[in-house]
Nucleic acid binder design. Structure first.
Length: 473
RNA sequence: GCGCCCUUCGUCUAUCGGUUAGGACGACAGCCUUUCACGUUGUAAAGACGGGUUCGACUCCCGUAGGGCGCGCCA
């Protein structure tokens, strides 16, 4: 028998779900799926000052948008404080923890002094072996873990390898605050144990915590979960991911028009690889995902690559499905609600018909939105600079010659119109571009658009002719 | 300051002692073309540095430099 894999994603609800968290969740999710296990979601909300309900909503919405699901209800870590206290008391009773009567000011001084003397900044163990009878009156103690002072703590990490940390560098951390609330390292250990977590996958910024947690596991006689500490994501400059570089909430990526499956693909490829494969479906990711192929060095977030991947997914998504995603996206986009309000059945039909030409030119849904703009425009269309230029430079004349021809068209289909216009161009000894660009300008108000005959067809005879005449008169 | 980790084209990466060091994004050039895209062809582009080990190192070891993370009664 093999025990089922249980992973967990454990964000603290102090802000949006940032991109690094999204990738951590993706890895946990993919790993659990691959092994037929499950991923749990635990909200680390023991910091009552900074945790907010909005942040919890943002995390859940972000994960949902990314298409990452979890087993059961999200667990509130704060909801388990009684259990955490119980374990802290147990450790205390066993002599594996002790009461510390230092005040925050004492500790602050201790740190300042250590720093001034260029010594490592650590708790000096003042109360480690001191008799509790010496406790100052009226001071509520915190409980500290009695960490081993000699030897070393070893973390067998699937990504980092065997990491050895000298115990002398780890001090006695507080596990229960003087107000009776547990701290992170205690809560995490207790929860992971109680929830049956078998595999912990999280950012390397937790590597030192892993050592302290390992010590707590051992003190409790619990089995240490299998660990993987994945490298962090950096900004394009190699330093921290700043806001303008991508340290945005996943909802920002949604607003920028990225598709969830493209995000999954891109994020997975950041730090993990499967040979030379660049584009792979989520199913393939699940099938291929492994901890061994996660690299150890930090990766830089690259919007250009993300755009490319996103463009690929946009192009390869079936029209109807893409249209549905586009409509869902609109409420999250700048100016999207106004566009959404103009969408009725007729417009949906037009969008669907225009989608093949539109999606080939869009790397994001925002670009798709811009590309579709001409369908929504009201006559007389505003012309951008280049379009106005085209109309001015002989465009109007070309259109004047074209209008009677188009009016006589019996079949208003892209194919028929194309042969009609091409024949006209040939008869006049004109290059097609001389006619196509003015048409594009008049029809869309811009100098770029999908194939011009498709534009004519989608717009329909009346609207198209109207737009053309607007530019001739 | 102390501890841990990292270092292959600009970026993401492949390589798991023997390769003309491969792919992708981006860049540049060409082709395609009614615009923009798409597509397609090609070009430039990398083992931080210094020592070892070895018949042979990008790959193993040591050092140096650079970078990251951690060192809260935050998580």
């Amino acid at each position: 028998m093999s025990s089922p894999v249980v992973t967990r994603f454990a964000p603290s609800p102090t802000g949006y779900l940032h991109i690094g968290g999204g990738r951590t969740a993706l890895f946990n999710w993919a790993y659990a799926r691959k092994l037929g296990g499950k991923m749990l979601l635990r909200i680390e909300d023991t910091d009552r000052e900074r945790s907010t309900a909005d942040a919890i909503d943002a995390i859940i919405e972000g994960l949902t948008w990314l298409g990452l699901d979890w087993a059961g209800e999200p667990v509130s870590q704060y909801g388990r404080v009684m259990r955490h206290r119980e374990v802290a008391e147990q450790l205390l009773a066993q002599g594996k923890a002790y009461r510390c009567y230092c005040s925050p000011q004492d500790l602050e001084e201790m740190r300042a002094k250590a720093e001034a003397e260029k010594r490592p900044i650590r708790y000096d163990g003042t109360w480690r072996d001191r008799d509790p009878s010496e406790a100052p009156a009226g001071v509520k103690p915190a409980i500290r873990f009695r960490a081993p002072q000699e030897g070393e703590t070893v973390i067998e990490d699937a990504v980092q390898g065997r990491v050895v940390i000298p115990n002398k560098d780890l001090d006695d951390l507080i596990i229960l605050r003087s107000d009776g609330n547990p701290t992170y390292n205690l809560s995490v250990v207790v929860d992971d144990h109680d929830m049956g977590v078998t595999h912990i996958i999280r950012g390397v910024d937790h590597l030192t915590n892993a050592a302290r947690q390992t010590q707590i596991y051992m003190a409790m006689g619990w089995r240490v979960p299998h660990m993987s500490h994945i490298p962090l994501i950096h900004g394009p400059d190699g330093a921290k991911l700043s806001k303008r570089h991508g340290a945005l909430g996943v909802e920002a990526y949604r607003a920028m028009g990225y598709l969830p499956e493209a995000m999954r693909n891109y994020l997975a490829r950041l730090g993990w690889s499967h040979g030379d494969d660049e584009i792979f479906s989520t199913e393939q990711l699940v099938e291929w995902f492994n901890l061994e192929s996660i690299g150890k060095s930090a990766a830089r977030f690259d919007f250009a690559k993300l755009e490319n991947v996103n463009g690929h997914y946009i192009r390869h998504t079936p029209d109807a499905s893409l249209l549905a995603q586009f409509v869902d996206f609109l409420p999250h986009a700048e100016g999207g609600k106004a566009m959404l309000a103009q969408i009725d059945d007729a417009m949906m039909a037009k969008l669907l018909r225009a989608m093949p030409g539109l999606k080939e030119r869009a790397k994001t849904l925002v670009e798709l939105m811009k590309g579709a703009q001409f369908l929504f425009a009201q006559r007389p269309l505003p012309m951008d600079d280049k379009a106005a230029q085209i109309i001015r430079d002989g465009g109007a004349e070309a259109l004047a010659g074209l209008i009677p021809l188009l009016e006589s068209a019996e079949d208003w289909s892209a194919l028929a119109l194309e042969s009609l216009v091409k024949a006209h161009a040939e008869a006049q000894g004109l290059k097609l571009g001389k006619l196509a660009q003015p048409l594009r300008a008049a029809l869309t108000g811009t100098s770029t658009s999908p194939g011009i005959f498709d534009v004519l067809e989608v717009l329909g005879r009346d609207e198209a002719l109207g737009r053309l005449k607007d530019q001739v008169s």
